[in-house]
Design a protein around this nucleic acid. Structure first.
Lengths: 201, 201
DNA sequence: CGACCAGTTGAGGTGGTTCAAACTTAGTGG
DNA sequence: CCACTAAGTTTGAACCACCTCAACTGGTCG
């Protein structure tokens, strides 16, 4: 049930300020939630992957936009149908609640990082996050420098410089500019100020 | 149902890093959710008032502490009982979901403010929030300068200086140090960068 | 080859922090 | 009623992390 829809990379699914009458489920791909201040500064507020939920349950205006970072498939529901389903199928509602609380947790952890972390701490946190639970040491950057900057609340230049610092400290290697290899995960986590399980997305 | 419990001002209800086996509902009073970095910098992640929910549904460690800002009454449930109730009573689950999504919204709005806002914008946003929907122009600061700083991701000194600036610009008056009167709400909202409905808590 | 785009590097400016001192206010006891 | 204290706040000066602006580099695609 719901209408399936393909979204091209870079296309906006939901506009900041819009009051959407539909909600969506992400089937595949990655979506960024980002807001822009009146004078054009952008901040990424969250990243939604497969299984994630986009939209509002009430009819208020959205505080942020949802934009596809790569080709995305979503499943659209009218809001009323969605709410009804959540109320009649407890297991759906419970899953939704669980996800909302997990998202809330991530948003709050990120809030600490942005509010109190230095530039190098934020960039280290991004790297730790990109590495995820994966055992392999080699990774591609899933985000451009600009997107990393918008996520960390920094500028492109600062992100680039901090990556340089981390590289020359021997914590990572960067064989090409969109690939990094973790050399010292322990120190990296320490810089990121990682309490166990500190993953923004 | 659940055990009722009175908490004194300043007492910690939930410790950062703790894995609590109980969740709580706030009956009265105000609780701050705050996290502290390894080197002692604190960031308030959220404010929970009456009707709010504290705790985790899973058994992971909490990323933040919950501390009473004033005398608080809470109602404690074992986590399992709470989860069961949410699953068997759809309307409870729905209410919980609604609140979680609202909290998520506030956290994300605050993330934008913290990530991209200047000091004066953050302080103005606090004032607008304190004023709330109230029609009266005179208000008491519900938080100390230090708490405002921890909430805005600034230092006490910066909060004090920005308040001074806002005062001498004639946007507010401060007849005593814990009372303020709004003189120019429109400009204040404009500085806060308020998209309609931009309230962090 | 040349244009373009993302990323890097450099130099200088600035907003917010840090450290320190003065001030205010409420509470306490002589 | 007046020190005296203690906690919170304000103010000042110097510093530094990050931003801004600008030039440069290295890939990629026509």
């Amino acid at each position: 049930m719901g209408r399936r829809r393909a979204i091209a990379k870079g296309q906006t699914i939901l506009w900041q300020g819009e009051t959407a009458s539909a909600v969506a489920n992400v089937l595949s791909g990655t979506v960024k939630l980002s807001a822009t201040t009146a004078d054009g500064r952008e901040q990424i507020l969250g990243i939604v992957g497969a299984g994630g939920f986009i939209g509002r349950i009430d009819d208020k205006a959205s505080a942020f936009s949802a934009i596809a970072l790569n080709p995305v498939e979503i499943c659209l529901f009218p809001r009323s149908a969605f709410v009804a389903m959540a109320e009649h199928h407890p297991e759906v509602g419970a899953a939704l609640l669980e996800r909302a609380l997990a998202d809330l947790d991530r948003a709050r952890r990120w809030l600490l990082m942005i509010g109190r972390g230095t530039a190098i701490e934020r960039v280290a946190a991004l790297l730790v996050d990109f590495a995820g639970e994966s055992t392999s040491t080699r990774h591609a950057f899933p985000l451009s420098r600009g997107q990393m900057a918008d996520l960390a609340g920094l500028t492109i230049e600062t992100v680039s410089r901090q990556l340089g610092k981390i590289k020359s400290a021997g914590l990572i290697a960067m064989p090409s500019r969109d690939i990094f290899e973790i050399r010292d995960m322990e120190t990296l986590r320490a810089i990121a100020g990682e309490q166990p399980g500190n993953r923004p997305h």
